[in-house]
């Protein structure tokens, strides 16, 4: 998703003549990166597929609004990330209790891995799942998509200061989880 696309502008300029084909080619170029980012944010591959599909539908509906073809990457990522964030919020509201998993884990308690690194990653993984939707998105954009703070702010449409403070808060929680796992 982040790789430079030298002929992207020329490709998008041909939109008038062949909009569907152009759209498909642009989206296809970003599909792998989008799917991987959505899966990391959502932690669920099936839901990530739906999120990418929904983002592509929204992008197709608004494709005529895209004035600067060079912005397709950032524009599509913004649609996708907002969709993922909405899904996380809905998930948080539903407060899904995975009863099946709880039962299985209570009958067969998980044995901690002997490897310290694995224990820390398990703890970090659980801590990521408990982050606020916004924080989870920011952590994924920062440490998986390798976006800078200004790029994250632009993607989410919020001030850089807000990104910094929320990232700081999220990192504090993750640091605490790691410290707990180290004990």
């Amino acid at each position: 998703m982040g790789e430079p696309l030298r002929d992207e502008k020329a490709l998008a300029l041909r939109v008038i003549d062949s909009r569907p084909e152009t759209f498909c080619r642009l989206v296809d170029r970003h599909l792998d990166g989008s799917y991987r980012l959505a899966a990391v944010i959502l932690g669920d591959r099936v839901e990530a597929e739906d999120a990418v599909h929904d983002a592509a539908v929204a992008a197709w509906r608004g494709f005529g609004e895209l004035r600067d073809p060079d912005r397709f990457d950032a524009w599509f990522r913004r649609i996708l990330v907002n969709g993922c964030r909405d899904r996380l919020r809905v998930r948080a509201r539903r407060r899904v209790v995975e009863v099946g998993r709880e039962l299985v884990e209570s009958e067969h308690p998980r044995v901690p891995d002997a490897s310290e690194a694995t224990a820390v990653r398990d703890a970090l993984g659980r801590a990521i799942d408990t982050l606020e939707p916004d924080e989870r998105v920011m952590v994924s954009l920062r440490f998986h998509a390798d976006l800078t703070v200004p790029a994250i702010a632009e993607t989410l449409g919020i001030p850089e200061g807000t990104v910094k403070s929320r990232l700081h808060h999220a990192m504090g929680r993750l640091r605490a989880a790691m410290a707990e796992a180290d004990r």
């Binding site: 759209f23 498909c24 599909l31 799917y35 991987r36 990530a48 197709w60 440490f143 998986h144």
Partner: peptide
């Protein structure tokens, strides 16, 4: 986060997206 990365998009998703227009 890398462990959560599933790799390239599956073929089914690619087909679904291609049919959108």
């Amino acid at each position: 986060l890398r462990e959560r990365d599933p790799g390239p998009a599956p073929y089914g998703l690619r087909r679904r997206v291609a049919r959108i227009p």
